[in-house]
Design a protein around this nucleic acid. Structure first.
Lengths: 202, 202
DNA sequence: GTCTATATCCAGATAGAC
DNA sequence: GTCTATCTGGATATAGAC
């Protein structure tokens, strides 16, 4: 029989190194673009030899996959920790602000999550499950605000995706589209809720 | 003295080969992604040896630059050949349809024009001039429709860019966002023109 | 104009010793 | 777990003959 301590120090150490690898990969993605991550340079940055990476990840795509899952978990948590207004228009404003801010604050992360930037990369089912959970959360929140038409949800994602896309590709680091977030949310609210919604709630 | 015929057959031949090179590059971009263009394979496809490409283009980025200019010229021409309605709401609907259709019909072209997908590529001033001409055309048309606030133009580009972005990255080849184009244009029209515009025009 | 030969450099991944 | 050594294949670009 082997001992079974409650804390597996070896597994903890392994997870810590995996996290180091991912951090280095994110850093390189921010510098050289998502496709510009080189395993040699990842290894160099954390002080190991390139082949050693393969003890922690099966392939380069496995690293992208872990990054994809991590990014989605970050967004899921960000959504969870907000205090969501119940008033529909306020909720939409906040949703737009949260999403656009998250998207623009790290272009590489945005590209990995929302653009299909790496040709041969497809997220694994486990990683994609987190993304689906985010969508599901959104569906519930929007239904509570009286928005349940799937086409309206698609229109919403287009509006916020457009703000983020324009901001990141035309003026990364600026706020030219960022500052239109509230106006865009209002425009959408007027369209799907009708302009009389606020009065009719009295 | 040398003869100066009105047709320079040598220059024509050269232009034809340049066009062949660009066509092959576009084809590869559609298959392997924009970054996946390999000069070896471009050469192989048109039946020359890789170094020969350098007689036609100075570098790989020069090829991207020519592609960028070509793509923008295509959009400029597409805009020019439409019969634009003078009624603002109809004009917006058509503008959205033209732009979104153009963006989604070739993902590689879309990435080259509107996403900064190739890290080290910056369009040359000459190539970028065509892109600016498109923007200028749009500004004039929108002003004629009574839309001159720069923030409203930015909001517009975000809306149409969002539709294209969602369509190309989530469902390339489909029409889930494509079919929301008219509704999105109307939503924008309601917002910037006011709902009374149609009546007040009588 | 097009070629061959080559320079230079980089990539991801594997084998197997320790 | 980490290493060295290596495989295999790719890339863009240049030199210089013809």
């Amino acid at each position: 029989m082997v001992a079974h301590p409650t804390r597996d120090r070896r597994a903890e150490r392994r997870e810590a190194t995996r996290a180091e690898i991912l951090d280095a990969a994110w850093e390189l993605a921010r510098i050289h673009g998502l496709a510009g991550i080189s395993l040699r340079e990842v290894a160099r940055r954390i002080g190991i030899q390139p082949p050693t990476l393969y003890w922690y990840f099966d392939s380069k795509n496995a690293i992208y996959d872990a990054m994809f899952a991590e990014a989605n978990r970050q967004l899921l948590q960000l959504i969870a920790e907000q205090e969501w207004p119940t008033e529909p228009r306020e909720m939409l404003r906040m949703a737009a602000r949260v999403w656009v801010a998250f998207s623009t604050e790290d272009v590489a992360r945005y590209q990995l999550m929302f653009q299909r930037s790496i040709p041969d990369f497809e997220p694994s089912p486990e990683a994609y499950a987190v993304a689906l959970e985010i969508l599901q959360t959104m569906r519930v929140d929007f239904a509570a605000a009286g928005i349940s038409d799937p086409a309206h949800l698609d229109l919403w994602t287009a509006v916020v995706a457009g703000l983020a896309a324009q901001q990141t590709s035309n003026q990364p680091g600026g706020d030219r589209w960022l500052r239109l977030t509230d106006e865009a949310a209002d425009m959408f609210a007027d369209h799907v809720l009708g302009t009389t919604t606020q009065e009719s709630q009295r």
